[in-house]
Every structure is written in C-alpha cells, then in structure tokens.
Amino acid sequence: MFAFIIRRLLQSVLVMLTVALIAFALFRFVGDPINNLVGQDTTLQDRQQLRETLGLNDSVVVQYWRYVVNTAKGDFGYSYMHRRPVKTMLLERMPATLELSIISIILALFIGVPMGVYTGLRRDGFLAKIFMSISLIGISLPTFLIGIMLILVFGVMLRWLPTFGRGEVVAFGIWTTGLLTASGLKALIMPAITLALFQMTLIMRLVRSEMLEVLRTDYIKFARARGLSNRAVNFGHALKNTLVPVITITGLQLGSVIAFAIITESVFQWPGMGRMFIEAVADVDIPVMAAYLCLIALFFVVINLIVDLLYYAVDPRLRIDGGGSGGHG
C-alpha cells in the first residue's frame, strides 16, 4: 500500500515534469519572447540587455530547470498583457472555477447515481424510459445551447435568475466564495446546471449499465436466495459493485469539467480560469497559457491519485495483504 503510494507519487512527478517541458516549449515555439515584451522601437542593445537579465541566453537545460523550479514555487512569471503576476491572476480566478466545477459534479452525482440505480432496477418502467429519453437529450445537446436556452427562459423571459457574472462574493483570505450570498447562489444555479447536465446523464447511463450487469451476477442471485431485503441487495450489494467505474469516470470528468468549463464560463460571463485562458489565447499571453496548462495537469494528477486511493477503499481485492490461499478473483 505504502509502496504503491510512493510509486504513484513518483509517476505523478514525472507527468508534471513532462507537462512543464511542454509549457516551457510554448515560450520558445511561439516566436521570440522579447518581441512580445518590448515595443517596435526598442534598440537592439536594450533587447540584448533584457535577454541577458531574463536569462534567455543560458542553455535550454538551465532555462528549463529554472522554469521548473519557479513553477514549483508557484511563480509563473508576468502576464504579457496585464503586466501582473500570473499567480495573482490565477488565484483570483480559481475559486470561481473550482466552486462551479465541484458544485456541478456534486449535482451530477447526487442526481445521476439515484437515477441510474432507478433506471437499472426498473428497466421497463415508464418513468425509467422517460429518464432515459431525457438523458439522450442531455448527452447530445451541446453545452452552449443548453446555457443559452436556460438564459433565454429563466433570465430573459421569466427574469428569475441573473444571466451573467458571479453575484456578490465573500472573501476568506485569498479565497472568494459566492456560496454564502443569495445573489451568488442565484448566479450559480444556471451555470452549474449547464455544466452538470452532461455529467449527470453520463453518470446515470454508466450506473444504469453497471447495475444491469451486476444484477445478473451470481452473488446477487445468491443474496436474493438468502432472503436479504431488496434494499440490502440493491444498495448494499449491487450498488457498491458498480462504484469502481463510477469513481473512475467521475474523477476524469471532474478534471475535464475544471479544464473545459471554458464554454460555460463564456456563455455566462463567469469570471473563472477558463475565460482567462480564452482571453490569453486570443492575446497570445504565453505565461498565462503555460501556467494554465501546468495547473490543469496538476488537477488531473491529484484527482487520479485520489481515484486510485478510492479503489483501494472500495475493492478489497486490490489490497495486498498476502492472507489468501490461492483464490482467483
């Protein structure tokens, strides 16, 4: 177990170093960084001096190592456009994105899993068929369309919910939260639903197919033959056996929700990292793009690590304790 964690951590470091290499390469591939920093009328001498002070004359390996060390310390350099440290910009934007993503995933899980269990158990039920039809819509409609339709109905026509922004936020040190004010919560509803809908239908369909699979197994039949209550069989025995794939997918989806909340953030003018990234791409703001790349990679690596640890918690077959007498799982 311990060795496993160490091994996984080392792998994670390797992944992060690779990502850092790609981020580092961004600076060199997208033209001369000096040109991006200075005006057209800067003299060659000044350029040379700037090049020297920024360390751009050192060998690539030295520069890469410096980049890795700085990045590890959270120093992503200065934004070309805004002339501010990228770190500060990210910290300002991160809470908005993380709050939106995590609320969406929680929403998706708390609605998706029960719906999946229900449609798995009552395969031919009327309500189950309705859920399945709705899920088809959720899985096939593009996110921006759902967002725009929500804005049209609840924002423009009914005027119940704000159509853009994050509402009022409360600050706790560097973290700003919109979860504690009425306007913040109201502003969160539509983006969260937009972002959650696809994840929810995905989780629902996954849980359903896993449930159908598990309900056919011998140990479920045997559990029924022992007279256990439906509740114990369906939720105690069946649902837990569907969890491993659900954890995998949810973990991956949380990562991509954080990384690709861009569309939802654009539609709702949500002041998150996704929008910052889009703006950075438009402005060729390399330090911001590189920092975003590293940060998202870090999220994925951490989430995957947590997912792996959850497997251990759920499935005893993965725990290595040598007490077996030759059984095969």
Partner: peptide, 19 residues
C-alpha cells in the same frame, strides 16, 4: 427464502460478493 428454503448455486467463485 433463506429461513425455510436455502439455496446453493453452481459456481462458488462467483456466488460471494467480492467486496
């Protein structure tokens, strides 16, 4: 079931919940 009529199935490898 279980109280008055018990059942044993064919494959012991799959009759027990692995978790």
């Amino acid at each position: 079931r279980g109280r008055q009529i018990g059942a044993i199935f064919q494959d012991p490898l799959t009759s027990l919940n692995p978790l």
